[in-house]
Design a protein around this nucleic acid. Structure first.
Lengths: 162, 162
DNA sequence: GTATGTGCAAACCTTTTGCACCAAC
DNA sequence: GTTGGTGCAAAAGGTTTGCACATAC
């Protein structure tokens, strides 16, 4: 499915030398890939998104829709962002992949509020002890996927229906 | 691989008074749901599966295919098993959902060998400290998904390409 | 100048569903 | 006898891709 390293969590790589223009802000989201007008608009929509989102969510955004950007282009741009480590999959909603922006560059995971969709980065809870326990029988752990779900502080305070 | 160890499932509700027939062995996989001839065959294929599998994998099995069981029926049976807690999703392969049998009834997660597809249950590595750390800001963690990937002892010993 | 992105629409593919029928309980 | 499972085929629906054109670098 993903031939490249669309799974890594390397959000912030060194930026190339470039003046700060409209597309310059988007550049970091795409890594080394080219930044077209459509991609700049999509990046803008991603940054404006408060929490988790689907490709369709972005495509339905006024910003993106009014720019006449096609849904296929959104998918391709999101794949590029994922390759760059700027976004990561955080689950699914109604059969569509849920994505969220990675705002930290170190190894981490995500907490997703099931009520409002807000996302928070969390430290990796997989300690050496747990890892050793799994590898004790000769196994080698090369990768892991961890996502936490629940209620954020705001939704929890308002009864979980906000 | 041994078709006779079918003890201890999450869904292991008290079995009704019933002779041990072919469908009796499958009963625990389906919980309270009905067990038809087709479902018995599908259960047999699931138990015979050494590791992770897709719906199509099972459907392509000689046992299932020769019984004339439809793919839709396989999907519906797998959904029933999942409801009963007898199997669980452990990732995806080529766009298809990967499932694996749960052989322990307590809260646990899965290690999947990316080389041979074998699956092992692992204790939940999410300790109280990690959980408290996430909930410190007022959040409430209600659910989490954890899956580990890597090489099993056998594949690791044979260079990981087995 | 060339490699890469875009838009459109069709293709893809896994999974779900409607329906008539049959079987488990 | 009723409820729930089955098979077939068609539908659903998210994601991908082919192609001709445009554009970032």
């Amino acid at each position: 499915v993903s031939p490249s390293d669309r799974e890594r969590h390397a959000c912030c790589q060194a930026h190339g030398p470039r003046a700060r223009t409209a597309t310059a802000g988007a550049r970091s989201l795409y890594g080394a890939a080219r930044v077209s007008a459509a991609r700049a608009v999509i990046a803008e929509a991603v940054v404006a998104e408060p929490g988790a989102f689907t490709a369709e969510d972005l495509h339905a955004t006024p910003t993106v829709r009014s720019a006449g950007v096609g849904l296929a282009t959104v998918y391709r741009a999101l794949a590029a962002m994922q390759d760059a480590g700027a976004i990561a999959p955080v689950g699914e909603r109604g059969g569509s992949a849920l994505l969220a922006r990675c705002t930290r560059g170190d190894h981490h995971h995500h907490f997703v509020c099931t009520s409002c969709g807000s996302v928070a980065g969390v430290d990796c809870p997989l300690g050496d002890a747990a890892r050793d326990s799994v590898e004790r029988d000769g196994r080698l752990v090369t990768r892991h996927e961890i996502t936490l779900y629940g209620l954020c502080a705001t939704c929890r305070a308002s009864g979980g229906d906000a």
